[in-house]
Simulated assay, not measured.
Amino acid sequence: MTDAGLSSRVQRFITTHIDSIEKLEVLLLLRARTDQAWTASAVALELRITEASAARRLAELKTGGLLLQDGVGADAYRFSPERSDDAQSATELATTYAARRVSVISFIFSRPMDRVRGFADAFVLKQDKDKGGNGHG
C-alpha cells in the first residue's frame, strides 16, 4: 500500500478513470449489479442523482472503456471493461472503497485540483480575450 493506504493499482485506476465520487458510485453500482442493463434514469433513481448527471457519467465511463452499451437499448449500459486489467482494478477499487472509503474519497479530491485550476485559468484567459476582441474590454 502506498499513499493514503491505496495500492498503486487502485491509484492508477482512479487517476485514469475516476474524477468524481459520483462517477465512482456509478461505476461501482454497475460493477456490483452486472445482471442488468442500466439506463440513466435507473442509475439516477438508485443513486439519487439527476438523470442528466447519470447520463453524463455513463457516457464518460463508456468512453473510458469500462462500460458497453447494451444491445437491448442504446441508452442502457453494462459493466464490461475492454481490458482485463481494468476489471481487476475495479474489483480491487470496490474492495478498497468498502474498507477505506475516506482514503479513496481523499485521493479523488486531492488529484484533480491542478486540472480544475488549469481549466479555470484557461476559461478566464479566454474570457479576457473575448472581452478585448469585441470592443467591450
Rank of each mutant, 00 (worst) to 15 (best):
T2W: 02
D3G: 01
A4E: 07
G5K: 01
G5F: 03
G5C: 06
S7M: 05
S7E: 05
S7Y: 05
S8C: 04
S8M: 07
R9F: 08
R9S: 15
V10G: 01
Q11G: 07
R12D: 12
I14C: 03
I14R: 00
T15K: 07
D19E: 14
D19L: 01
D19A: 05
I21H: 12
E22N: 13
K23G: 02
L24S: 02
L24C: 05
L24T: 01
E25D: 15
V26W: 01
L28A: 11
L29W: 06
L30F: 09
L30G: 05
R31E: 11
A32M: 14
A32R: 15
R33V: 05
R33I: 04
D35F: 07
Q36D: 10
Q36T: 15
A37P: 13
A40N: 04
A40V: 01
A42R: 13
V43Y: 01
V43A: 02
A44L: 06
A44Q: 05
L45T: 15
E46H: 14
E46W: 07
E46N: 14
I49H: 02
I49K: 05
T50W: 07
S53T: 14
S53Y: 09
A54G: 12
A54H: 07
A55I: 02
A55W: 04
R57P: 02
R57G: 04
L58M: 09
L61V: 06
L61W: 03
K62I: 00
T63I: 08
T63W: 02
G64V: 01
G64T: 03
G65S: 08
G65H: 04
L66Q: 04
L68S: 12
Q69Y: 03
G71P: 10
V72F: 08
V72H: 12
D75R: 03
D75M: 01
A76P: 03
P81K: 05
A87P: 06
Q88P: 00
Q88S: 11
Q88T: 13
S89E: 08
A90M: 11
T91M: 14
T91Y: 15
E92R: 12
E92D: 14
L93F: 00
A94E: 15
A94Y: 11
Y97L: 04
Y97C: 06
Y97K: 04
A98W: 06
R100Q: 15
R101N: 09
V102W: 06
V104C: 10
I105T: 15
S106L: 11
S106Q: 12
S110Q: 11
R111V: 00
P112F: 04
M113V: 14
M113L: 14
D114V: 12
D114G: 13
V116K: 13
V116Y: 14
R117H: 12
G118P: 02
F119C: 00
A120I: 14
A120S: 12
D121C: 04
F123Y: 10
F123I: 08
K126D: 11
Q127K: 03
D128E: 11
D128W: 13
D130W: 05
K131F: 15
K131Y: 15
G132T: 07
G135Y: 06
H136T: 02
H136M: 04
H136K: 07
H136D: 06
